[in-house]
């Protein structure tokens, strides 16, 4: 029940964003206690003296097959704790999750209708029936932070591959 409530409330928020941008901005002039800041970096594998390591660089040139690291930083600017903080990130259609998400990350393979660990999800197989979902089937990722103390900050990340 809690779940469906949240769905509704967010669907409503989404509609507002889509249709009435300025009105929304006005509505939020009572500022959100939490700020979200997105960022993307290109993960470049560099081999030096036979040792490979991954460097994060500005994504100036991005081609299919490249690995991207999407980061969302949050900060509680308010005076009281924020609880039940759930960050949801729809994957851009051109990006596939690069592998099974890190422990604790939940994914959806059906546009955000159902969630779970990737290994437990199924998708319709082209030849009929169902098959186990793979990282490439993931449409959304989300993270839940139980509580953010006033002034506290953190970040959530996912790795993607340009399809």
């Amino acid at each position: 029940m809690k779940l469906s409530f949240l769905v509704k409330s967010l669907a409503g928020a989404a509609a507002m964003v889509a249709m009435t941008g300025p009105a929304l901005a006005a509505a939020q002039s009572a500022p959100s206690p939490v700020s979200l800041k997105g960022d993307v970096m290109l993960e470049k594998t560099v081999t030096e003296n036979g040792v490979s390591k991954v460097q994060l660089v500005e994504p100036k040139v991005v081609i299919p097959g490249d690995h991207l690291l999407f980061t969302t930083r949050y900060h509680n600017d308010g005076a009281q704790a924020v609880t039940n903080f759930v960050v949801t990130n729809p994957l851009p259609p051109a990006v596939a999750l690069s592998s099974e998400a890190a422990p604790g990350t939940e994914v959806s393979v059906d546009g955000g209708k159902t969630w779970g660990q990737l290994g437990s999800l199924k998708v319709a197989a082209t030849e009929g029936g169902e098959r186990a979902a793979t990282a490439g089937d993931v449409t959304h990722v989300r993270w839940t932070i139980p509580s953010i103390a006033p002034g506290a900050a953190g970040e959530v990340q996912y790795h993607g591959i340009v399809r």
Partner: peptide
């Protein structure tokens, strides 16, 4: 903007 969020998880993972 797809919604649907629930709990469980680790920040900064």
């Amino acid at each position: 903007l797809i919604p649907l969020r629930r709990a469980a998880g680790i920040a900064g993972c």
